[in-house]
Every structure is written in structure tokens, then in C-alpha cells.
């Protein structure tokens, strides 16, 4: 336990800082290009999409058959329509699918990813090869892996040939959801594995040696040393993956197809609306998705990732952590 405390002290040692008058103005000046870029690529699209979501394009045909269009301000009408309108069922279904996919895929990815990391962290012949091969799925573009899995899951595909049972994976239903989950986990478990591996490699070997001397077996070492020390890295990886999974679009779209209710996510719904040139509703869906992502991320940090937020407080009292 002493070793941990020392490490904590080392990591948190900081150079003394002196703040001069005028530093703040200089800092603001130096940061202004960053703020400008952020305003352009984040704030502007955000505000523009919000504004768009308050309008509805109305179109009709005049006597000659030409389209007459105009944007009508409807206030929160698009949102009310999404939550209580005739198509509300489709929205709640998509919301459920998005949540379901996020939690199942990220859950499985954590288990498999940590197992990958443990395997990759061992010293053995061919370790570099194993590391590279585990990362291949992550390097393949999602749309391409969607197509690959579509071949595997199609009616006369590999899966049905091996199992000998004809399951129509790319039609509707739970089979379709299972196909998406399998493909998504295959693709992104290496990502978690990679980040966890990075976390594992900075755990000093002495801790394990000390544990061995104390008679801890491999499982005890994993629970007592590896997991607590990779927890920060793991939480960041899980947060990244959750934000990513909540936006899931290309995999269900390519693997199963658009407008299939069992795999329709919020992003696909937004795409479908914008494809029909209903930009108001599409923007409203995007804003709802944005708020949902923000809420989930905030809840995640609050409940699980307390040390991400409280890092500063803990730095001041490193001993407290060491005694945990």
C-alpha cells in the first residue's frame, strides 16, 4: 500500500505557479482562435439546428402542380408532435432501441475488452501479432463491417450454414437486434481493450510482486490491483463508447436497413426525416438526441465516474485515496 501512496504523490506533484497581472488578458488573447473555431463548428450549428427545429416547412401544390413551400414558425410544435403526435410510437421505439443497444453493447464490450487487455498485457511470443489482429475490427470503417456482417448474416450466409438453422437475421425482430449487437461488439470491443491496456501498462510491476509475496492468487490480483488501477482509463473508454453508441447509425442502417422498427435508432429517425426534406422535425430529433446524450453522460459521470470530476479534490488529499 505504501507504494501506491508514493505513486500518487509523484503524479500529483506540481510546479509552483506565479500569476502576474495581465496574464488573464494574454491568456484570453492566445485562446481566442480556439474559441473562434469552437464557436464556428460547435455553437453555430447547434444554435442553427435549434432555430431550425422551431420551424416546419409546409408545402402544397398550386393549380399548375407546382410546389409552394414556406417555413412556418411553430414554436415547440415539432417537439410536441414528436412526443404526442401520431408518429410518437415510432419515436419511443427508436428511443428504446437506442438505449437498449447502448447498454447491451457497451456492457458486453467492457467484459470482452478487459479480457482482450489482459491477454494483450501478457508477455509471450507473438504478442505484437495478437495486438495488431485484435485491433483490425476497430480499423475497419463501420459501413464496411456492416456489409461484411450482412454477408455473414444473410439467409444463405455463414451463420446459417454453420448452425444449420435458417434464421432470418436481416429481417425484423430480436434476431436483427442480436445481429447488430454482435457486429457492434465485434467492432468496438478492441477500442475498450486498447484503452484499458494503456491503463494496465502504467501499473508498476512491484505492486504485483508485493501481492504475490502476500500470497494473492491471479484472480485476487486482478480484483484488488488491476481493476481499481485501470478504473479511470476504463471509465473514460466506457464514456466514449456510450456517447458513440447513442449516436449509432451506420451499422443498423447497412446491416439491417432503414425503417426497420426493431433496429431503428434516433439517428436513423433524424436521417429519415431530413431525407424527406422535413428539416424542422429532423433538427428537433437531433436536439432531443443531443439532450439525451448530455443527460446520459452527466448521469454517468455523476454516478460512476465520480473520480473524473473530483480529481481536483482528491489531488489535495492523496492519502485518503491510498487508504481505500
Amino acid at each position: 500500500m505504501m507504494t501506491t501512496t508514493q505513486i500518487e504523490r509523484q503524479t500529483t506533484a506540481r510546479r509552483p505557479q506565479t500569476v502576474k497581472v495581465g496574464d488573464g488578458r494574454m491568456a484570453a488573447l492566445l485562446l481566442s482562435p480556439t474559441f473562434l473555431v469552437l464557436a464556428l463548428v460547435v455553437a453555430y450549428p447547434l444554435l442553427s439546428a435549434f432555430r431550425q427545429s422551431l420551424y416546419r416547412s409546409q408545402s402544397g401544390l398550386d393549380d399548375d402542380g407546382f410546389v409552394v413551400t414556406g417555413d412556418v414558425f411553430v414554436g415547440l410544435g415539432n417537439y410536441v408532435n414528436i412526443f404526442t403526435g401520431t408518429e410518437a410510437g415510432r419515436f419511443y421505439n427508436a428511443l428504446w432501441n437506442t438505449t437498449f443497444f447502448t447498454f447491451t453493447t457497451v456492457g458486453l464490450e467492457v467484459i470482452i475488452g478487459v479480457a482482450f487487455a489482459v491477454a494483450m498485457n501478457r508477455a509471450f511470443r507473438g504478442r505484437a501479432l495478437l495486438r495488431a489482429s485484435i485491433l483490425i475490427p476497430w480499423a475497419i470503417p463501420t459501413a464496411v463491417s456492416g456489409l461484411l456482417w450482412r454477408w455473414i448474416f444473410q439467409a444463405d450466409g455463414v451463420v446459417n450454414s454453420i448452425t444449420g438453422v435458417e434464421v432470418l437475421w436481416t429481417a425484423e425482430g430480436f434476431a436483427a437486434q442480436a445481429a447488430v449487437i454482435v457486429a457492434e461488439v465485434w467492432k468496438t470491443a478492441p477500442f475498450i481493450g486498447l484503452l484499458v491496456l494503456a491503463g494496465m501498462q502504467i501499473i508498476p510491476g512491484e505492486i504485483y510482486e508485493a501481492a504475490k509475496l502476500d500470497g494473492a492468487n491471479a484472480w485476487r490480483q486482478f480484483i484488488g490491483i488491476t481493476l481499481p488501477l485501470v478504473r479511470p482509463a476504463l471509465l473514460v473508454a466506457v464514456l466514449f463508447r456510450m456517447l458513440d453508441a447513442l449516436r449509432m447509425f451506420d451499422l443498423p442502417f447497412v446491416l439491417i436497413g432503414p425503417r426497420k422498427s426493431s433496429v431503428e435508432t434516433l439517428s436513423i429517425l433524424a436521417w429519415d426525416e431530413s431525407n424527406q426534406l422535413n428539416y424542422g422535425t429532423a433538427s428537433a430529433f437531433s436536439i432531443i438526441l443531443l439532450i439525451y446524450v448530455a443527460v446520459i453522460a452527466y448521469a454517468f459521470i455523476k454516478i460512476l465516474g465520480a473520480d473524473i470530476v473530483e480529481a481536483k479534490a482528491r489531488r489535495a488529499t492523496p492519502k485518503k485515496k491510498a487508504t481505500r
Binding site: V41, V68, G70, L239, L243, R247, L289, V293
Partner: peptide, 18 residues
């Protein structure tokens, strides 16, 4: 990540004119 997710979850939009 939060900011990126925010930016990415927005589709590019343009308003349909008369």
C-alpha cells in the same frame, strides 16, 4: 467528447426557400 458528440449529432440543415 461531449462537445464532439453534440456537434456530430446534429445533421447539417438548410432551410427550404420559396
Amino acid at each position: 467528447t461531449l462537445l464532439t458528440a453534440a456537434a456530430l449529432s446534429l445533421t447539417a440543415c438548410s432551410s427550404a426557400g420559396q
